[in-house]
Design a protein around this nucleic acid. Structure first.
Lengths: 125, 125
DNA sequence: CTACACCATCGATCCGCCTGCATATCAGCA
DNA sequence: TGCTGATATGCAGGCGGATCGATGGTGTAG
């Protein structure tokens, strides 16, 4: 499995929404589904949450195995999935590998899911 | 697999975000992951898109099999997944079953994914 | 009443993924 | 160099899901 780059890169992730005007293309649907699949796992959601709420907004593997109740290889596996999806970034400092959220990654997904707001007639709530 | 009701119901879907302040609970993570899992499929994303862009914002199964290139049982299966996740609603009229988007369902998911903008100090947009 | 069209369900198959154990890799240290 | 600890990778078992063909149920038309 070679590294395919962050699936959330602007060039790979289309500017379309599944709720947009035009029917979504097959290839676009597969790309978006790929990123959502990385999110659609309880362990990975908790990992994102744990990392985000960590002291410096970063955490190493050894800090994450205990709260999750999963083995270290399994945690590394999930972190890899999230990193390849473009949701996490990894920094190796000494023996430890620190993971942190990619700032706007999840917000980008949220935007893709948000309807294209035809706010012409829509009053602010 | 018995029907568990709309996973997006206010009572079942917590008001937490994976990017919220507190680490997400295990049960909450599983519920959110369940809804995301329903979204994380190319066929289902295209179904949502097709239905949304249909003339009246609704479509029956017979209109959806051809564009997707999937068999009718498979399309029914996906529609069932989306409906049980609370993303679609079904209305039977005669022999046809019309599906339409649940208005704010996907927006709710998007909100859950959106960082909780610590609005204590942040002025309301 | 019979035939037909639309849809849901069932059963079976195939494939991908979550998980853990074992092992490899790498950095720091004596 | 050799040892220890933190991560990553390989491998395999087991479960869930995506798909299709066949079947059943139900309106509608004739």
């Amino acid at each position: 499995m070679e590294y395919v780059g962050t699936a959330l890169a602007e060039t790979t992730m289309p500017q379309i929404s599944p709720l947009g005007g035009e029917p979504i293309e097959r290839a676009d649907a597969e790309r978006l589904a790929g990123v959502l699949k990385a999110l659609a796992d309880p362990a990975r959601l908790r990992l994102l949450s744990l990392i985000q709420s960590a002291p410096e907004g970063e955490a190493c593997v050894c800090d994450l195995t205990a709260p999750l109740g999963l083995s270290q290889p399994t945690v590394s596996h999930h972190l890899r999935i999230l990193t390849e999806a473009g949701l996490l970034e990894r920094e190796k400092r000494g023996v430890w590998a620190y993971y942190r959220l990619v700032p706007t990654a999840i917000a980008t997904i949220a935007d893709l899911l948000t309807p294209p707001r035809k706010r012409a007639t829509k009053k602010a709530r």
